[in-house]
Design a protein around this nucleic acid. Structure first.
Lengths: 221, 221
DNA sequence: TCAAATATATGAGATATCTCCTATTATTAT
DNA sequence: ATAATAATAGGAGATATCTCATATATTTGA
């Protein structure tokens, strides 16, 4: 993890017009964090120090269970707040966030400006809209996931997460994301392969028939 | 639906200290609605007129599908905001809310005071906290529902929704709530009956063994 | 570099849940 | 009161998904 300074810092603050979220001068409280792939932005159980706003990169949200196992809950993409619930509720972090690529996050020191944030209608309005969209998105995802078999959801996911027709994600992680067993995920990959939509190449899958995959994905909603 | 006036109106406004949510005088904008059982508080597709805050009663949140079918999404209990997403995003209602008992709701005329609301840090902070709790609750529910079979979830639900050891809900509605087929819901009721935990009496079920039901429910999380 | 840990892979049988079908019983509207 | 509608009820067979077991390949850490 790197704290950017000087021109680099200014570059991101201006590019993403961070000031426009606030009605007071936020510059004394903003840090620009650069996280390398695999870094933890937030660790479960630790006390919140910053309200983060991710502007570049990709990250994953995890929760860990009593038995020590860890589940992938969601993929996070910018622009997104992280740690806003803890800002509002004075709790320790209940989830972890780990980057899956290099990430740029603006971090606002909570201790220094919690009062200012919670009294700034402009910021709060923005945060409300963010939370409300998050809630809507969550609802939609929940409905989808409840109503369709893995085959359809996986087709959609392969299309979304592949790069240049190559899908390369960890099965262990994806089975957790979908809340299905590892075994069943493999079954479903085998189905898609048999149907000629994808092909296994070494440790990854190549998309062979984008239309068929899309048709499967389109059965959802 | 009834608009309460005079002393009745004052009674509810004071009992639930509605003024404490705002930093400006809300009284000119508040109406107190009394809905009878079965009334719609919000109808999908209509334009939002009020931000509602339910303080007494019970209601159900529905969404309707392209094919005309309607699904129960959630049970709503006070204190709860309704229509807050539409206040924030200028959309028409995307869901319906129908009372399942007499309900008292405070209604704030959106047209008259949207600007004031969205500029009131005190109110916005409260709304943020509400939205953030909703999001957390939603997450928890989603995780549960994904991870456990209906038998456990139904046991929990029977305990929560029964009155004086009698469970009486419409199977059609509950199967939608859990996102399972009607047939499977009946199977599961039959299982619980065979195991001696409940007993069908006319159109309802009587709880026979609260501990066993509780044990099933406790397997969740 | 090698052992340990993690991830991939697949078979076999069990269970949860679905779809379709067909009656019967309540509820609602004319 | 009666016909129409909606809800309850359960059989039978199909499908989606799970658990457990076992083997191999890949990645990681000392």
């Amino acid at each position: 993890m790197n704290l950017l300074k000087g021109l680099e810092k200014e570059y991101y603050i201006e590019k993403y017009t961070i000031q426009s979220l606030f009605s007071f001068d936020i510059s004394p409280f903003v840090q620009v964090f650069q996280f390398e792939k695999g870094n933890f932005i937030i660790q479960e159980g630790s006390a919140p120090e910053y309200l983060f706003y991710m502007v570049e990169g990709k990250a994953k949200l995890y929760v860990s269970h009593k038995n020590g196992k860890v589940s992938l809950i969601n993929f996070l993409t910018p622009p997104i707040f992280m740690g806003e619930i803890e800002l509002l509720n004075e709790e320790k972090y209940s989830k972890s966030i780990q980057t899956s690529s290099k990430c740029i996050c603006l971090g606002i020191a909570i201790e220094k400006c919690k009062e200012k944030l919670l009294a700034d209608a402009h910021f709060l309005k923005y945060l409300c809209i963010f939370l409300s969209n998050k809630s809507t998105a969550h609802s939609t995802k929940y409905t989808k996931h409840q109503a369709y078999p893995l085959e359809n959801k996986l087709a959609e996911f392969i299309l979304l997460s592949s790069h240049e027709d190559i899908y390369r994600e960890k099965h262990t992680e994806i089975s957790e994301y979908f809340g299905v067993s590892y075994r069943h995920l493999l079954h479903t990959f085998a189905q898609l392969s048999e149907a000629g939509m994808i092909e296994k190449i070494k440790m990854s899958y190549k998309i062979l028939d984008r239309e068929k995959l899309q048709a499967l994905a389109d059965e959802i909603k």
